[in-house]
Write a protein that binds this DNA or RNA. Structure first.
Length: 422
RNA sequence: GCCCGAAUAGUGUAGCCUGGUAACAUAUGGGACUGUGGAUCCUCUGUGCCGGGUUCAAAUCCCGGUUCGGGCCCCA
């Protein structure tokens, strides 16, 4: 027996129904915010990803050489391909340029729940603006997309790398020490962090205040800590303005300032954010993003960029965990011939309904009415048309409403007006 | 890449400890009910993840692999 490769999945019609629903609601929200869809190849030159994230990521790439000896890789994410495309052919588009995407990505990782080797990402890039209102809108978009899918419990956490760097300066931490404590901050392991800071000769008083600042949402506390650092003060004022807009203009009040968000990569600068779904446990992060600079790295003219990526599969899992009722696939009409001599009429009725945009199907197994009703029920048919000799003598059929069980006899000509109204 | 657990009809499970006829529910196909039964009843089909070992005998015990889950690493 064959089975799917490790970390990959088949999607049944039932699962595809959910995935298409989710994709549709997300795409609708993106377009309502003025974004246009973009699609890039499933594989790219390996260099694109190593340039962005360093050689070490080859271990987690599906990388291969093609028959011409070109070093290629299945894409592990979509930001680099989209920015590559921008640099290659979209630089002269009017700004701001708003791009969104859906796409399968591939990473050689140990699979577990919410983590697959082939997975889908949804996301967007905002190119050519970093005004407060643009940044606030990006945060609002990320939050709104997830809310619009029907998710109830999500947490938006906002951090800032410029501010955290200023704090490090304040603590007089060496570069190597910073590297060591960053992962501890990212994982919110504050006990270990405290010990590590003592080893770096940071005073007890500073450690206490620092830990407090990392966990606070109070901007005044943060401002007090960074003191007269000009760059950090500017950034903090910007953050304050952005958050005011998010709360008062976009009406999204439930965010949390979390300076401990550092994210795992070097090209982010300034604002970073994450959205979690507590329902998911270990792999609970649904969305991550921020402002970054990749364009100059890829040889384009530097303009401000920001964006985020959403874990599509995790979002779906979170909805399932919350018991979300997905729309069920339905059939408008199922047509049942009482015996096979009715087939000709039954097919004509079915075809006419289909041509009117009404989804319709008919019994193709020559089963009795009972079994056919059961099948119609399993397929969530709304109405059933029963075609039998008794009715046909008077050029009529029986229409049964599957929800109420109510039946009425209708002439052949009236079927279509009758069904179109409802 | 590391530690731990699991794997039995399409689906959900029992049996495993203590080796001895693979079971139950549900779903699917067929039939009865002579056109209303989205019922009921009857019935066919379909199952031990893979490979080795121990044994007269392995779903059961042992070893290796695979896959899935839980926790790490990582998370662009």
């Amino acid at each position: 027996m064959f089975q799917v490769p490790r970390g990959t999945r088949d999607f049944t019609p039932e699962e595809m129904q959910k995935r298409r629903y989710l994709e549709h609601t997300m795409a609708t929200t993106f377009t309502s915010f003025g974004y246009g869809e973009i699609q890039t190849p499933t594989f790219e030159n390996q260099e694109l990803f190593t340039a962005k994230s360093g050689e070490s990521i080859i271990n987690e790439l599906y990388a291969f050489n093609d028959k011409g000896g070109r070093a290629l890789a299945l894409r592990p994410e979509l930001t680099a391909p989209v920015i590559r495309c921008y640099v290659e052919r979209l630089q002269m588009e009017p700004k701001p340029l708003k791009l969104y995407y859906f796409g399968n990505c591939y990473r050689y990782d140990r699979p577990q729940k919410g983590r697959y080797r082939e997975f889908q990402q949804a996301g967007c890039e905002l190119i050519g603006t970093d005004t407060h209102e643009a940044t606030a809108e990006l945060l609002a978009l990320a939050y709104t997309i997830l809310k619009n899918t029907g998710l109830k419990d999500i947490h938006l956490n906002i951090g800032n790398l410029t501010i955290i760097s200023a704090i490090f300066r304040k603590l007089h931490l060496l570069k190597d020490d910073q590297k060591m404590i960053l992962p501890l901050i990212d994982k919110s392991q504050f006990d270990d962090l405290q010990i590590a800071l003592r080893d770096c000769n940071v005073s007890e008083e500073m450690i206490t205040t620092f830990l407090d600042v990392l966990q606070t949402s109070d901007i005044t506390k943060i401002r007090a800590f960074i003191g007269d650092d000009a760059e950090a003060n500017t950034e903090l004022s910007s953050l304050e303005t952005i958050l005011d807009l998010l709360r008062d203009a976009f009406h999204i009040p439930d965010y949390v300032i979390k300076l401990s968000i550092v994210r795992g990569l070097d090209y982010y600068k300034g604002l970073v954010f994450e959205i979690d779904a507590p329902a998911l446990g270990a792999e609970k992060q649904l969305c991550g993003g921020g402002s970054y600079d990749l364009i100059s790295l890829f040889g384009g003219t530097a303009v401000p960029t920001s964006g985020f990526a959403i874990g599509f599969d995790r979002t779906l899992l979170a909805l399932e965990e919350e018991g979300f009722q997905f729309p069920t696939p339905k059939l408008d009409v199922f047509v049942i011939p009482v015996n096979p001599t009715m087939n000709n009429t039954v097919i004509q009725i079915t075809q006419k309904l289909r041509s009117l945009g009404i989804s319709a199907d008919f019994d193709q197994l020559r089963r009795g009415i009972g079994k056919s009703l059961k099948y119609a029920d399993a397929k969530h048919a709304e109405k059933v048309i029963i075609v039998g000799p008794k009715e046909l003598e008077n050029n009529t059929v029986t229409i049964r409403n599957m929800k109420t069980g109510a039946q009425e006899v209708v002439t052949l000509n009236d079927i279509y007006t009758k069904l179109q109204k409802s």
